[in-house]
Simulated assay, not measured.
Amino acid sequence: MDTILTLQDVSWKRDGRNILSGIDWKMKKGEHWGILGLNGSGKTSILNIVLGYHFPSEGSVTVLDHRFGESYLPDLRKEIGFVSSSLNRFSHIIEYESIEEIIVSGKFASFGIYEEVAKADWDKADDLIERFRLEKLKGKPYHQLSQGERRRVLIARSLMNDPKLLILDEPCTGLDILSREQVLALTKEIDRNNCSIIYVTHHIEELVEDITHVLLLNDGKIVAAGPKEKVLKDDLLSEAFQLPVSVHWKEKRPWLSVAQHAEVNS
């Protein structure tokens, strides 16, 4: 499989209003994409289409060789890992579970363990704990972890099923700068898992070196899509963010500055 996903001329409407319009996007194996844009730009809607929770109003979608309209989409979701700050809504279910139990539950795509776990699965969870440098947290219940530690545990959990695609939906929301950098550093471990990444964010500084491509959105349309260095340009970012900005690079990582006297439309 050389192509991870293809969205061709995709539009999606809700309550008669265009949320996405004319989306053409192809993601190939070996690429890691960032999706960047303001609130309401269409980022979440694209994720919901990729995950099969929304069908496009127009256009065609193929994800991991599953063509929408011809495939059983619950099978597709088993091949996709998903991590988001929205998963905090399950915290009450797992607050007293250890990190080992939480990570191994990813094998069954459940929060909580409701069936027998094979020794090989516990061994795999231990390997992920080591790779993600979580050894000091072994045996700790979830409610005692910091927000950054919780996010790292959930990312490790998402890899238990060896997904072909991992979606990280604003995984650094609510984290302090140290916790954010610890989470961003995990992209190298994810890449080692032979897993493609979609990383959704508002903040270009989170598009670390391992993110190779960017899909830049504004008002449900693509402003630009392609290699990171070609998309993260002053004019394109200014169009997407609706105010004059400039980008500078440091150690292969982009940073954004707003023009000193930029006029902000309310």
Rank of each mutant, 00 (worst) to 15 (best):
T3C: 13
I4T: 10
Q8R: 15
Q8I: 06
D9C: 13
W12F: 15
R14H: 14
D15M: 11
W25T: 12
W25N: 12
W25K: 13
G37R: 04
N39E: 05
S41H: 08
S41W: 08
G42D: 10
K43N: 02
N48M: 14
V50T: 09
H54N: 15
F55K: 15
E58I: 14
V61K: 14
L64D: 09
R67K: 15
R67T: 15
G69R: 13
Y72N: 13
Y72C: 07
R77D: 04
I80H: 09
G81N: 01
S86M: 12
S86Q: 14
S86F: 10
R89Y: 10
I93F: 05
I93Q: 07
I94N: 07
E95D: 10
Y96T: 11
E97T: 09
E100C: 02
I103P: 10
V104D: 03
V104Y: 04
G106A: 09
G106Q: 08
F108K: 12
E116M: 10
V117H: 10
A118Y: 13
K124A: 08
D127H: 09
L128F: 09
F132P: 05
K138Q: 14
G139V: 04
Q144S: 13
S146P: 06
G148E: 05
R150S: 05
R150G: 04
I155Y: 01
L159R: 03
P163S: 04
P163W: 02
L165K: 04
L168N: 00
G174C: 01
I177T: 12
Q182T: 05
Q182S: 10
L184F: 00
L186N: 02
L186K: 00
T187M: 11
T187P: 00
D191E: 11
N193V: 00
C195F: 01
I197A: 06
V200W: 03
E205I: 06
E206S: 03
L207N: 04
V208M: 08
I211M: 06
V214A: 04
L215D: 06
G220Q: 08
G220N: 10
A224G: 02
G226V: 12
D234I: 03
E239Q: 13
F241W: 04
K252N: 14
R253E: 07
L256D: 09
L256Y: 07
L256H: 07
S257K: 11
V258E: 03
V258R: 00
A259P: 06
H261E: 15
A262V: 07
V264M: 10
N265H: 09
N265W: 08
